[in-house]
């Protein structure tokens, strides 16, 4: 691998790690607060990409507006998931997980029926051109993901540490019963967690829409990767999710470049299996799931 290729791959890994982080923190947050896992997190990602497709490609709104709009729209879907799927199955993580698998099927069909199945929806790249860094060319469209992630994840961190509602979320994640005794409404907190979880998945999908083919099934790979990231990081740990996201981003990108994407996926999965065997709580987690 030459130096230019290395820089190129390194930058790509950072971008991919950023996207993984943005997708996975939502999953980790929801798991921490609800003790429930969303199988269709990838479909929320897909929904975000379709928001951009509709608002930017079809309606003609500015790309930035479409990306920002993806947050509330997909957040609403996340809240719907919480109300309809997670609340009735609360306490049974397998039931909730399978119910969201059903919801994923439903979303794929609805999107496919509305905007076509299997067609590659190309979203015109809004930020054209590329940046020259140490001799390697990295497209602006990809590069913009890194600051976006810093803003989003930084914002989440601020929200969880400094804002009252965010502190409530953390209290619920640590000890739901104690949180309820302090007057925190568990239902409100789970709803808020799924709202944020959906919003983050939506924005990530929106940012990726011009880069990868937009199809009803595009979310699957990202959903699966988000799960691997969250398990490696430690199910309920946001910091763990960010760390694992970049580890997986680097594993996937470098192995794809040197070998191929199938090998990259295999190594990623194997890495997760090893982490589970050696430290079943994940890298930074302390709860066994």
């Amino acid at each position: 691998m030459g130096f230019e290729t290395f820089v190129q791959t390194f930058a790509n890994a950072l971008v991919l790690g950023s996207i993984y982080a943005m997708v996975a923190v939502g999953l980790a947050l929801a798991f921490g607060v609800m003790q429930m896992a969303n199988f269709s997190h990838g479909e929320l990602f897909m929904a975000g990409a379709y928001v951009v497709y509709v608002l930017y490609s079809l309606v003609g709104l500015p790309f930035l507006v479409a990306v920002v709009a993806a947050f509330p729209i997909v957040a609403l879907i996340g809240m719907l998931f919480e109300r309809v799927l997670f609340r009735p199955t609360r306490g049974n993580v397998l039931s909730g997980f399978m119910a969201t698998a059903g919801a994923g099927f439903i979303m794929q069909v609805l999107v496919g029926q509305q905007w076509g199945v299997g067609l590659m929806r190309s979203v015109v790249v809004p930020y054209k051109g590329s940046a020259e860094i140490l001799g390697a060319a990295i497209s602006w469209q990809r590069l913009v993901i890194i600051p976006a992630t810093i803003i989003m994840v930084g914002g989440l961190w601020f929200f969880l540490k400094k804002v009252k509602a965010g502190k409530g979320l953390r209290a619920c994640a640590q000890d739901p019963e104690a949180a309820v005794l302090q007057g925190i409404s568990l239902n409100k907190m789970t709803s808020l967690a799924m709202l944020l979880s959906g919003g983050f998945a939506g924005v990530s999908g929106a940012l990726m829409a011009p880069i990868i083919p937009v199809t009803p099934y595009m979310g699957h790979v990202y959903g699966v990767t988000a799960f691997i990231v969250v398990i490696v990081g430690g199910m309920a740990s946001i910091e763990g999710a960010v760390l694992a996201a970049f580890i997986l981003g680097f594993i996937h990108t470098f192995i794809s470049t040197v070998y191929d994407s199938v090998t990259a996926t295999m190594v990623g999965v194997l890495f997760m299996a090893i982490v589970l065997v050696v430290k079943p709580t994940g890298l930074l987690g302390n709860v066994k799931v």
């Binding site: 119910a99 698998a101 059903g102 099927f105 069909v109």
Partner: peptide, 17 residues
């Protein structure tokens, strides 16, 4: 045919809930 996954998704959810 195309709506079948939706149907099964609904069935799964209805049974679980």
């Amino acid at each position: 045919q195309e709506w079948r996954p939706l149907l099964f998704g609904l069935i799964l959810i209805l049974f679980l809930v």
